[in-house]
Simulated assay, not measured.
Amino acid sequence: MSRRNLKEVAQLFLKLGVIGFGGPAAHVAMMREEVVSKRKWLDEQHFLDLVGATNLIPGPNSTEMAMHIGHERGGWRGEFL
């Protein structure tokens, strides 16, 4: 993956971390708006599949979604941003 992709992932989640409030459901909705509607990194079905996967794993969905999106866009390095 390119450094550009990693930079984009880091910038997106910095932005969402600063302006986001309202709990995991609100964060997931904000991620959907950014990565599906605005940036077109994922299509709607892929995003919904990831939401379904995060519902099977214990823990906060928004954190898991951020890791999935980071991995999709930035590879294994993006997963840890």
Rank of each mutant, 00 (worst) to 15 (best):
W41K: 00
L42F: 08
L6Y: 02
D43W: 15
S2K: 03
E33A: 15
W76P: 12
N55A: 14
N5Y: 02
V18H: 06
A10C: 03
F80T: 04
K7H: 02
G17S: 09
M30T: 05
S2R: 03
T63H: 09
A10I: 00
P24V: 10
T54H: 06
E64C: 10
N61K: 05
N5G: 04
R77S: 05
Q11S: 05
H68A: 10
F47D: 04
Q45E: 15
S2V: 04
E33F: 14
V36Y: 05
A25K: 14
E8W: 03
G20C: 11
I57Y: 10
L42C: 06
F47S: 03
V9P: 01
V28T: 05
L50K: 02
R39N: 09
W76C: 12
N61W: 02
H46I: 05
A53S: 11
F80N: 09
L14Y: 08
G78C: 03
W76L: 12
N5I: 02
E44Q: 10
M1P: 00
A10N: 02
R77D: 04
N5W: 00
G75C: 12
K40D: 07
V51F: 13
L14D: 13
E79R: 15
I57D: 06
A29C: 09
R4K: 05
L48N: 13
A25P: 08
G74V: 01
R3K: 01
M1R: 04
E33D: 11
W76G: 11
N55P: 10
V36M: 06
I19Q: 07
M1L: 12
G23P: 01
V51E: 09
M1E: 00
R32P: 00
W76D: 15
V9C: 02
E79L: 15
E79G: 05
E34Y: 11
W76S: 15
H46N: 07
V36Q: 04
L14A: 14
F21N: 04
Q45N: 12
V18F: 14
R4F: 07
R3Y: 04
G78H: 01
A26H: 06
L81E: 03
E44G: 13
E79I: 10
R4S: 01
L16E: 03
W41H: 00
D43P: 06
P60I: 08
N55T: 14
L50M: 13
I57M: 15
E64I: 14
I69K: 02
E44I: 06
K7D: 00
E79A: 15
R39E: 03
G74I: 01
H27A: 08
E33I: 10
T54L: 08
L81G: 00
M65N: 04
R32L: 14
Q11G: 03
Q11Y: 09
G22P: 09
E79N: 13
L50P: 02
L56G: 15
K15H: 12
P58Q: 08
L6G: 06
L48G: 12
L6W: 01
W41T: 00
H68Q: 13
V18M: 11
S62C: 12
K40S: 12
Q45R: 07
L16G: 04
F47E: 05
L56H: 08
